[in-house]
Design a protein around this nucleic acid. Sequence first.
RNA 1: GGGUGCUUAGCUCAGCUGGAAGAGCAUCGCCCUUACAAGGCGAGGGUCGGCGGUUCGAGCCCGUCAGCACCCACCA
Length: 921
Amino acid sequence: MDKSYNPRAIEQRWYQQWEERGYFAPSGQGESFCIMLPPPNVTGSLHMGHAFQDTIMDALTRWRRMKGDNTLWQPGTDHAGIATQMVVERKLQAEGRSRHELGREGFTDAVWQWKEQSGDAINGQMRRLGASVDWSSHRFTMDEDLSHAVRTVFVRLFDEGLIYRGKRLVNWDPVLRTALSDLEVLSEEEKGKLWHIRYPLANGNGDLVVATTRPETMLGDTAVAVHPEDERYQHLIGKELCLPLSNRIIPVIADEYVDREFGSGCVKITPAHDFNDYDIGKRHNLPLINILNPDASLNENVPEAYRGMDRFKARARIVADLEQLGLLERVDDHHLMIPRGDRSQAIVEPYLTDQWYVKIAPLAEPAIAAVNDGRITFVPSNWSRTYFDWMNRIEDWCISRQLWWGHRIPAWYDEQGAIYVGLDEQDARQRAGLTPEHALNQDEDVLDTWFSSALWPFSTLGWPEEGTRLQQFYPSSVLVTGFDIIFFWVARMIMLGLKFMHDVPFRTVYIHGLIRDGQGQKMSKSKGNVLDPIDLIDGIELEDLVQKRTSGLMQPHMAPMIEKATRTEFPAGIPAFGTDALRFTFAGLATTGRDIRFDLGRMEGNRNFCNKLWNAARFVLLQTEGQRIAAAEQPGSVDRWVLARMHRMVAAVESHFAEFRLDLASQVLYEFIWNEYCDWYLEFTKPVLQGTDEQAKAATRHTLLSVLETTLRTLHPIMPFISEEIWQRIRDLLGISGDSIMLQQFPRAQLPACAEPECGLDQEIDWLRDVIQGIRRIRAELNVAPGKPLQALFQSGSERDRDLLQRYSDIFSQLARIESYEWIDESRDTAQCAVALVGDLKVLVPLKGLVDVEAELVRLRKQLDSERSMLAKAESKLADRRFVKNAPDTVVEQEKERKVTHASNVAKLQDQYRQLESLRD
RNA sequence: GGGUGCUUAGCUCAGCUGGAAGAGCAUCGCCCUUACAAGGCGAGGGUCGGCGGUUCGAGCCCGUCAGCACCCACCA
């Protein structure tokens, strides 16, 4: 074995073998366990968030697979309508072409090509991460069978009246020229102005002042509203105004919606370009005047002077014109929420169009109930509240998009505009009994990407066909995802899963935090702070990293800043850490529900951990290779001790896994492997293995191996590669048959009942460690070289101390570097010694000629202070009658023991101090 | 305007049903001791955001304030 762990040499080899041998596919036996991979968008490559998520899913999947479950981790990718169309359009643009040039078919062909390439990259990344997905069942949301599921759902919902086409205001992205759902619009506060405009009364008797943040929409005004109880305007309700610039006559209406306190208390009403005004317009039967073209330029419904102008150009012009007419009362600075499309960043306009909608209320109700009655649980549970909040206010879902890339809506129109819905044109005709001569044209639009995503838990399993996969793996077990798509995806899967499968799509929704950079910033390409998980695995030179982060930017002027920040943060680039270290780091960071600052320091610590484990394995192999290894009839006490510790660790890991606490599971593993197995047990074995007791040696060798082997299996779900590599090397020694650790059984903890002798073992070993550490501390604090052999004296111990010392004499001597020791009489002068206390036992090191008296006095003084303060604490507690009366007996008892111990320690230390002090001068 | 989460060692974070504050990294000593210098052995470092309350006892429960982060929302 190499002297240090080299992940590069082994990872890909094992993955390839696992995949080739079909280990990832469901075994067909045992209880079903299924995780649906949230299909990544085919737009690009996996980022840290994906890698984090994949680690969690893979750990859970491997764990359940090893427990004997029939395990399916369903992989796939999402066509990501808008996002992908944009990426490909941008690519075309760079080549000086446009999608219109290619035409619809040509363009979608181009997107398919892109999808192949990008999808491959994503799958390659997942392999590098060790993801044990069942590749044979990989799906893409636009595969034919999934598309069929989409059409089937559409038709059925349409037939039930749950999908309808309607003309109403939608969020319109004028750059992409498509409708968006409410979720795809993000509002942010921006600086703007509040224009106060005078609207003259039609009868010439004065005017009304309206305040608006959008003066250009006044061209579409069809009323001005005031509050019905506003005394200032009572007399004007029902009167008419002359709308400036357009010179139309519009009424003054009264509506409760108006806030008297805001602005002038008069609101211009533009039903076709504002969601509130739309509602008011409906209440008052106002006409709708659409003044925008699809690109948000003004259309033929406005005065000629403004036609064809973009809305914001028109705004400037209108404001200027109003000013000239003396109708601009004043302009205030004003902060307002600006809605933007989440992909294009374009300012979204409320726009009157025909779109397809899903009627949500009938679907939402059972979906709320499913979480309410516990058929679905959120982990952590507080996310269910977020879910309820949204579900209770949810509105109909606009599902049509004016794009080319996606599932084309399975609806056809005839020349009269009648709608025919069907799985395909033939089906639509058949359902309506149309003759072949009846001309039909298919709807040009495609469906919202999330429509197909919502079906993912059953469409990937073969629905609408009934089949064993569907039966076995629906509902899936756990959904692992980020909070950012609870609304987009989780809620919709629940609604449609319940609707079409009559059962929830998953039992548990595990919500994880967001991976941020070291400064707590969200990672994004535009900020130039993204890390490619593969770069953490393989490492990357600084120059390459800079190059990667600064190329292909939407805002190239950011490049120098990004470069500088990158050079500061990673002056030496990023070293190769390997997949297991990355996964272990993710697991350790997977605490419930909070965002995660990615810390390279932790990454490094975990790489070191891999190396530690690697070297422990080297040691074990060195001791066992070529030996006959058999289970010992009489394992020694340190063997039994480490086995007990190991079982405790296994039990803890198991329960942490069950509660999705991978952070705690990884911590328990880390501590056992490093702090128990390596730091103590391996050291304990050395004197035995160097000794002559063949039986003890055999027992030790076996324990070394079997503890390592069991630990590797416990570790495997989180660190699949190193565990496999080492396991393969020790498998034969233990006579284990089996081709891979990933097919072995996950360890089952055997916890000793407390009546068994193992319970006393812990105390014995604690004693042993205390004695060794006492001497080590004396060495370190008094600057005695670690390797220098010392003599030790023992004084005033109990029978048990004598017994233990005798039994662990070899270990003690070697680990504490003691060449000889003896028991001395109580009355013996120990002035020339440094002391360590272990219970009643005084461990003494003669320091004549080794160190100066003053240094030891300082050391004693420090110990005394600490012992005294602890004694005082215990005494004061026990002196408090209320404490003794109210606290549970065990707590009071504990306090009494502490008092005794510390009192005894103080006495001993004082005595030692006095003796030593007498040596002064 | 509603809602959620966070505030613990210099940094990144654990801390289970309230019973003497933990890890990794960083820092300071001493060591190349034949598994590992990506290491070993030791050490230092915290009035657990502020205030108030409940309790024999609070990092943990309650109230309140402050700061940070995020989500949702139609005040023109």
